[in-house]
Amino acid sequence: MSVRPLSEAEREALVAAADALCGGGRLSAPSATPGYEEWLERALAARADAFEEVVAAAVALDGLSLEGRREALRRMNADERPRFHALSSVVAGAWLLVPEIAAALGYPGQVAAPAAFDEAATQLETGILDPVIARGPIYKEA
């Protein structure tokens, strides 16, 4: 789905960048998240306009330790905002797309959640609007 196939080295560089940006918290790091690489392909396709920039930015971190990558990314965020924005959006955004990660973060996606017929009325019947109504008209005559 990407604009061109990734080389193995490029793929590893992108996953390593993702680990530096998303890993170390309460959830599994991207490299340890099953399915991450498939969603990475999809994220790259969504930002096909930035494909080469994103790949190059990740490859530039090659050979650095996790902390070294994080430090390099910290500098990129400070000095090269558009480049960092593209890279971080794609590799971190891909991780957020993994269904298990999205579920762990409480995002159900764009699910259909039609309102019950009485939901709006029930909310307003709590009396929450009463102070506004009690205050009376506020509009300015003109």
Partner: peptide
């Protein structure tokens, strides 16, 4: 940076 990226990201 460290309040958003790395270990902080998921939260």
């Amino acid at each position: 940076f460290d309040q958003l990226w790395g270990p902080a990201f998921a939260d």
